[in-house]
Design a protein around this nucleic acid. Structure first.
Length: 848
RNA sequence: GGGGCGAUGGCGGAAUUGGUAGACGCGUCGGUCUUAGGAACCGAUAGAGCAAUCUGUGAAGGUUCGAGUCCUUUUCGCCCUACCA
């Protein structure tokens, strides 16, 4: 039999789709829209399996929704600014633009080879002037709305990449890309005022029903709302300071107060800047840093000042003031009131410096003599040793009551605090969107006039300089407007800014004057289904949500707050890892195995160590090249496999055997196709018509339901079952019309998953049938006619399965049981105590 | 330390609301065809037993006519987060 030649057929259909612009979309108010978006890729060179999985999931949905009659927007673009381009350019003496654009060309071709239903006319690239021009306009708008500001701040300085990192880009005290230990440096930076929307971003989460709870929880924790109060402590000492503000969630433990701790960056530290001991102490703090180990060891160290803090509820109590390494400047006021008995950090600190540990909360289950001794107690209980606070239930009542008292006495006030900090967007890099501002000779900020936008990146520059290359391009940096001299801002924007609004640009990719056109946004937004990796759960998704709010702010024409209606986070693609005897990683291509258990290197024929399956990464060399797989097995097979082995939200393990299985299945479908067409020509009498009709009908139902719930792996199993079933059932005679109608349906069901194969079969099939490409609908009446299997249990144990028509009564099933020899035996001479009957499911007889 | 998710055959995984546990695939075993097959096709495949049948969803208990699914306790694994006052 003729084998299915994917090479010819896939190329044929990809050409067809391209020439006919099959996936071009235009806004059409008469049609219901559906916006499918996958997170756009960074053009790093070649696509990887993660992309294949991400874009296949989206493509299946896009094709399905389109067959359902939706006007589907399914675009693709490039997150094209960023450091890898600059680094690669520096190493290979290339232009970052050329490097990026050549990667885009390669990856675009690879994506096309996957057969994705993308409207390539909407392709965007964030590094093109067309794109970043509008980003600069947004920047100036937000600047005018005072949602962007400049401040001098400590930043995370990556000494290897020579750039500032956002807090989120620092992992265990190291740069997320370079891995270098991050240093603290004070620089003037641009900030987006994301914290202004803390509460709104938090509240908005509740409405996002179709987002994974996991992601919502992560964002919630990141925003980190906490309820408490600010307290002003009076200060005594030799310095011109009379008070220090603290934020606390436990004002009710004020009577357990035994020290006040300040961040080393607290403004009061300026009085100690020449104090040698304090300088040494700061040095010591920076050594412990914020690494994982340091926190695990968690040594609390402090520097005692000559100041005393007065307890506002008990003015006769005066406690020492320390600088301490565990106090963060950017949370609360950079000052903490220490209550050792009920906070573990304070407890550790008090132990070290022999400070008083006074118990003021007694757990309910403990008696009057309860005393905190070996560790702090932070659970619920009753307030004790606290004068007028005694007896309050902690923490709920006691906190509220204490705040009330403090407010009455004007010693403090209720406050809600958020962990979320403003978003620092300045990057000292070349390959990013220029910030469209300039400074006059007094250093005052001026927006670049809109008529002069975009501020273009200079080309053909020398990247091999220390620091930011833009800083050294004098003829770009210095400008003159109306005879006045200005210096340009040389920092560029964090690339997360680019990805915070790209989904809007896809709606109006060619709009010249603004980032989008209102009518397009009104029609297409929000994104109906967003698909991507969970690694963007916080940053990208939170920034995008912020960006919508920022555009929305003081803007009557724009009323979108949430960009992504529904979110799906797919799992990673994994593979075993291999290491040779010298502990060098080996690519799966470099090893072979005869029994599937023992692996040997191809080069040296020596046994290699097989490591656990981990997510594919270049560093561990456990990657499989998608293009190679497509060349070997065809895009449809690769699509089929990437979806077959695991639920899309979980990690999937790449396996050669599985890949081959999918390839073989396409061949089987091809033989089934022949079987159908041959049989149609035979024109038989329809003995088996009913079976085929009902089976197809229930298949439509199953696949549609599974599609709606992203259970793609189950759908692939449904297709295997279908093959096994039909392959047998077609042995019996089926009438021509039934064959035609039902096979036509099956081809349409297959279409979103294996589009080249299905298109080819559908085209060939047009000799028998051709109407439209509409998604088949199950016939409810036929579904109701299906037979059901009723489980017969006796004393809760399964004894028999009876096949019946739907909705038969309890008496009817009892009759069937009584006439069944096997079941009769169980019931012989027994007393029936109870019957449980669940229609169409089960009957359970309890006997004695 | 805090939060979340998970644990089902040799493996990946199926199993609406509690209602046939192990769909489907991979692997393995057997067979057919073949000079040969690592191709194709057919069959078997949770464990124990000749069988009827019994036992089985990390462990222990509970609710229920009935638990992979619900509750309590517990063990292990993964992910996120991290001195947040």
């Amino acid at each position: 039999m003729e084998r299915y030649n994917f090479n010819i057929i896939e190329e044929k259909w990809q050409d067809f789709w391209e020439k006919n612009k099959s996936f071009k979309t235009v806004a059409d108010k008469n049609k219901k829209k559906f916006y499918v978006l996958e997170m756009f890729p960074y053009p790093s060179g070649k696509i990887h399996m993660g992309h294949v999985r991400n874009y296949t999931i989206g493509d299946v949905l896009a094709r399905y929704k389109s067959m359902q009659g939706f006007n589907v927007l399914h675009p693709m673009g490039w997150d094209a600014f960023g450091m890898p381009a600059e680094n690669a350019a520096r190493e290979n003496k290339l232009d970052p633009k050329e490097w990026t654009n050549s990667n885009i060309t390669t990856m675009k071709n690879q994506l096309k080879k996957l057969g994705l239903s993308i409207d390539w006319d909407r392709e965007i690239s964030t590094c093109s002037e067309d794109y970043y021009k509008h980003q600069q306009i947004f920047f100036l708008e937000l600047l005018e709305k005072k949602l962007i500001y400049r401040k001098e701040n400590y930043v995370n300085w990556d000494p290897v990449d020579e750039t500032v990192l956002a807090n989120e880009q620092v992992i265990d005290g190291k740069g997320w890309r370079s891995g270098a230990v991050v240093e603290r440096k004070k620089l003037s930076q641009w900030f987006f005022n994301i914290s202004k929307f803390s509460q709104d971003l938090l509240d908005g989460l509740d409405a996002l029903d179709s987002w994974p709870n996991k992601v919502k929880t992560m964002q919630k924790n990141w925003i980190g709302k906490s309820f408490g109060c600010e307290i002003e402590f009076k200060i005594e000492g030799q310095l011109p300071i009379d008070k220090i503000k603290c934020f606390t969630t436990r004002p009710d433990t004020l009577f357990g107060f035994s020290f006040l701790a300040l961040s080393i960056d607290h403004e009061i530290s300026s009085f100690y800047k020449d104090n040698k001991e304090f300088i040494d102490f700061k040095e010591e703090c920076s050594k412990t840093g914020t690494t994982e180990e340091a926190i695990a060891v968690g040594e609390k160290i402090g520097f005692k000042t000559n100041l005393k803090a007065i307890n506002p509820l008990n003015p006769s109590q005066k406690v020492p003031v320390y600088f301490a390494n565990f106090v963060l400047m950017d949370y609360g006021f950079g000052a903490v009131f220490g209550c050792p008995a009920h906070d573990q950090r304070d407890f550790d600190f008090a132990k070290k410096y022999n400070l008083e540990i006074k118990t003021v909360v007694r757990p309910h289950e403990k008696d009057k003599n309860f005393k905190v001794e070996n560790e702090a107690y932070s659970g619920p209980g009753v307030i004790i040793n606290s004068e007028f606070l005694n007896g309050f239930e902690a923490p709920n009542n006691s906190v509220i009551e204490t705040i009330k008292i403090l407010e009455e006495k004007k010693l403090g006030k209720k406050q809600i605090n958020y962990r979320l900090k403003d978003w620092g967007v300045s990057r000292q890099r070349y390959w990013g969107c220029p910030i469209p501002v300039m400074y006059d000779q007094d250093g005052k900020v001026h927006p670049v006039p809109k008529s002069m936008l975009p501020v273009k990146l200079p080309e053909n520059i020398d990247l091999n300089v220390k620091g930011n290359p833009l800083d050294s391009i004098e003829n770009w940096k210095q400008i003159e407007i109306d005879g006045k001299k200005y210096t340009r801002e040389t920092d560029t924007l964090d690339t997360f800014v680019c990805s915070s609004w790209y989904y809007l640009r896809f709606c109006s990719p060619n709009e010249k004057n603004y980032g989008f056109e209102k009518s397009d946004i009104d029609y297409w937004m929000p994104v109906d289904q967003y698909i991507g990796g969970v690694e963007h759960a916080i940053l990208h998704l939170l920034y995008s949500r912020f960006f919508m709010r920022a555009i929305n702010f003081e803007n009557k024409d724009f009323n979108i707050k949430e960009p992504f209606q529904s979110l799906f986070t797919q799992g990673m693609v994994c593979h075993e890892t291999f290491k040779d005897e010298k502990n060098n990683w080996l690519n799966p291509d470099e090893v072979f195995s005869e029994d599937g258990k023992n692996f040997f290197s191809i080069k040296e024929k020596k046994q290699v160590k097989v490591g656990p399956s981990e997510s594919m990464s270049k560093s561990k060399k456990n990657t499989i090249d998608p293009e190679k797989m497509i060349n070997n097995y065809g895009a449809d097979s690769v699509r089929l496999f990437i979806m077959s082995d695991s639920p899309p939200e979980k990690d999937v393990q790449w396996s050669t055997e599985g890949m081959e299985g999918s390839f073989k299945f396409i061949q089987k479908l091809w033989s089934l196709n022949k079987k159908f067409t041959d049989k149609i020509k035979k024109n038989e009498k329809g003995v088996n018509d009913d079976t085929i009709i009902k089976y197809t009908n229930s298949l439509i139902n199953k696949i549609t339901n599974n599609l709606e719930n992203f259970r793609y792996n189950v759908i692939i199993a449904n297709f295997y079952e279908m093959y096994n079933f039909l392959n047998k059932e077609l042995e019996k005679p089926v009438s021509k019309k039934v064959l035609i109608d039902n096979y036509y349906i099956i081809l349409k069901l297959l279409n979103p998953f294996v589009p080249h194969f299905a298109s080819e079969c559908l085209e060939k099939f047009s000799e028998f049938k051709k109407d439209n490409n509409e998604w088949p609908k199950a016939n409810e009446k036929l579904l109701a006619e299906e037979k059901v299997k009723i489980v017969v249990q006796i004393n809760g144990k399964k004894r028999e399965i009876l096949e019946t028509t739907k909705d038969i009564s309890e008496n009817e099933i009892l009759d069937m049981i009584n006439s069944n020899d096997k079941l009769k035996n169980y019931l012989y001479k027994k007393e029936l105590i109870k019957k449980i009957f669940v229609p169409n499911k089960i009957i359970n007889l309890i006997i004695k």
